[in-house]
Amino acid sequence: MAKDLDYEPSSPKTIKKSTGTKVFEAIAYILLAIGSLVCVLPFIIIVSGSFTDNSTILIKGYSLLPRDFTFSAYETIFRSPKDILQAYKMTFYYTIVGTGLGLMMITLTGYVISRKEFKYRNTVSFLIYFTSIFGGGMIPWYLMYANVLNLKGSTLAIWFPALMSPFLVILMRTFIVGAVPDAITESAKIDGAGHFTIFFRIVLPVLKPGLATVGLFLALGYWNDWYRSSMFSTNSSTWQLQFYLYDLLNATTAMKQMASNVSMKTADLPTESVKLAMAVVATGPVLLFYPFVQRFFVSGITVGAVKG
């Protein structure tokens, strides 16, 4: 069976690094360092901004290190920790259920449409792909869930619509085609293995990078989503984390605009720094979680073991 090996392609213990390799590696390090720096700079600005007093940001602009250090933005967000913890809890729930179920459905579908002996594989692929091009728009989609299925307010309406996506199905098919040569499944079939056996015993074990990729995309999709809460939630106890934060943001701007139409009290929120703190609060957990997924992308997998 396959097993993870900590394997570095360019540092075999037996062969000494050539000059060319060294130069190549040096260039790789430099480019990656530059890339990382460009990517991380705005993030540092965001983090330090989230610890800066709101009016300082407005007056002095952004900086790499926090000025007038304050927690007030986080205090605003965590004003009622019960709510935000509930939002965290719900988001974990949606992400776990959605990613689990979705990954299963996507992998099964990817397996089916990658089988050469399946006569309708092209038809099914087309029908799935077709949905990524044509759609009836948001309103019929909304009415489908809200009126026809009567799911408004239910948590099902929040995780169900994002279970699959044509992109991920097709990506998964590519991974399966790439990872499992036909010869292997053919020989397994001759040995009398059924589809479920082939799927679980042969395909899944060598599919780890694919599963990790698709799973990561699914999970990120769930983590970053706020739209379905906005559409279907009737009670703040079912809100996704991103919506909880996003709505806080929208409420500030909307209420300020609203105030030119209606006499109403506008809430006193430190907007700029709260925006930044929200980004940190919402992203933090993912960045902590990412290294766990990462091991599938930094260590190779030997397919060879299966061949034997």
Partner: peptide
């Protein structure tokens, strides 16, 4: 309505 996309949701609510 919440303040997120409230125009859109307001129309949806009436449609539904």
């Amino acid at each position: 309505s919440t303040w997120t996309d409230f125009q859109q949701k307001y129309a949806n609510e009436i449609t539904a």
